[in-house]
Amino acid sequence: MTDPDTLQPVHEPRLWSDERWTARVIKNEDDDGWAVSMTLHGEAEPALVGPWTMGRDKKNPKPLDVSAFNTLVKTASEVLRRHEQQLHAQLNKSVAVTVQGRRLRVALSIVPDDEGATATLSATDDLGEELARVPVPPTFRLTTASATAWAEGDFERPR
């Protein structure tokens, strides 16, 4: 019996897929050349779109093959990984401050949500023990000055 969620591999000159990715050679709308798109299964938009090589006849695209597909998977996976790292960095910030001779790490974590993002401000000491955790607006700006003021104010919820 076949699992309907299991995708069958496709190995065609302009369409190549495995259980996670689909490569599709498409006409480049900007010129006479060709492009290739790499889409992760389940996603609406491609993770990567790039130029594709012309075939020997200089009219049609070079056919996809296992080597090209594997290279495209590696490149598209790296694009997704960088995007995830960038998003993580935008949503999670931290600064180190010294207050009353104590070294503290103050962190802001934002959780995106279609209904409305939430954010948490937390402080840990140099041993990693959490000293405080409070909800803040997702628009809160974490800076060295705001972190120091929060710690000096006995970790009361910033207004």
Rank of each mutant, 00 (worst) to 15 (best):
Q86F: 14
E84F: 02
P61M: 07
A145T: 11
A107C: 01
P138F: 01
D32A: 02
P158M: 11
P135V: 03
V111F: 06
S94V: 01
L72S: 08
V106M: 06
L131I: 09
R81C: 06
G153L: 08
S77R: 13
V79G: 04
H83K: 15
M1D: 03
W150K: 05
H83L: 12
N70R: 15
A23K: 01
I110E: 02
L104K: 05
S77W: 00
S94Y: 02
W16S: 03
A35Y: 00
D57G: 05
E156A: 13
N60W: 05
L64P: 10
L104F: 03
S122V: 00
H83G: 13
R159Q: 14
L80Q: 15
H83M: 12
R105K: 13
D65F: 11
E115H: 13
R14N: 08
K62R: 15
V97K: 03
P13H: 05
G42R: 06
Q100V: 05
K27P: 12
T120E: 06
V134F: 00
D114C: 01
R105V: 08
L142M: 10
N92H: 15
S109A: 12
A117E: 07
P61K: 06
G42V: 12
R159Y: 09
P13W: 00
R81P: 14
R81Q: 12
R14A: 00
Q100L: 10
A132C: 08
T143C: 10
R141I: 12
L87H: 11
A145S: 09
A76Q: 00
D30K: 03
W21G: 02
I110W: 11
S17A: 07
T2F: 09
R81M: 08
D154Y: 12
P63R: 07
V25G: 00
G50W: 01
E156I: 10
K27M: 01
R81E: 15
V97C: 11
R81N: 11
P51I: 02
T139W: 10
S122G: 04
F69K: 11
S17C: 08
M38A: 02
